[in-house]
Nucleic acid binder design. Structure first.
Lengths: 138, 138
DNA sequence: TTGATTGCAAACAATTTGCAATACT
DNA sequence: AGTATTGCAAATTGTTTGCAATCAA
């Protein structure tokens, strides 16, 4: 079924590169646009959006919406790093993302599915709060 | 300080009423707009947004961004119901929200702050996944 | 009367879309 | 050659803002 060939382009490669270089960062389409303009030359914004759509569809990148309302954020789903399995904590103050790979989480998910019949999707879920540093700074 | 009087209007009352009638629903500004038009007559959209802003500011309502990108969602923070304390699970298929008031969650938060130094903010956090019904239907 | 709130229309910002030009294989 | 991808500009969509009219106190 669905057999659409996949052409390899300069633009796509650059977007992939951006994520490779910034595996922990939540980037906006604009961040990537600016990266391209700075390092690689000109690009159309629509192209960025289309690349990102493709990557989200392929499960390479996760798309979510920031609290701020400044638009969507994209982040690499690094399977080598277990990003498809673990939770992400995001600090609402400094924006840092913590990858939560921890046995307790498995218990957490098991509890939720067992007691509440709810199957957590951790590729979509982001837990907001304050990281240690920012909490201390307050 | 800050002593801005608060006038009571037909429009504000209707928005509050909407939330009172739908304490569990995540509504868009447009949902509320349509509710008003249907039940109460005409209203400007800007007014809806301004009412909602006010309520968010007062901590009566929570604002968050849906996955779909269809815009912001608003939901009553019902203190009588502990919505300021417990987690919310949202089904990505049917949109239903489950209020998770459960001892395990306290343990969860304690674990995260203890082992990962992260202070969870459950007024902002929404856990996505599939509810029992939708999971069964697949 | 005083100041907050409304409604409209215009302004905005992020994203999407149509389509002809271009690049990949 | 044949088709996916790009770039531009125009169109959409959700939200915000300026301002005069209106309404609550």
């Amino acid at each position: 079924m669905e057999n659409k060939r996949n052409y390899h382009t300069r633009q796509q490669e650059a977007v992939a590169e951006y994520f490779r270089l910034n595996p922990d960062v939540c980037a906006t389409a604009d961040d990537i646009y600016l990266y391209f303009m700075r390092e690689k030359g000109k690009i159309g914004k629509a192209t960025i959006y289309r690349c990102l759509d493709r990557m989200v569809e392929n499960g390479e990148v996760k798309r979510f919406l920031s609290d701020g309302g400044d638009g969507a954020m994209y982040q690499l789903i690094d399977p080598a790093n277990g990003c498809d399995r673990h939770f992400h904590l995001k600090c609402t103050s400094c924006g840092r993302v913590i990858h939560l790979d921890c046995g307790f989480m498995a218990a957490f998910e098991k509890h939720i599915v067992g007691h509440h019949g709810f199957r957590v999707d951790n590729t979509r879920t982001i837990i907001y709060g304050l990281c240690e540093t920012c909490a201390a700074a307050q």
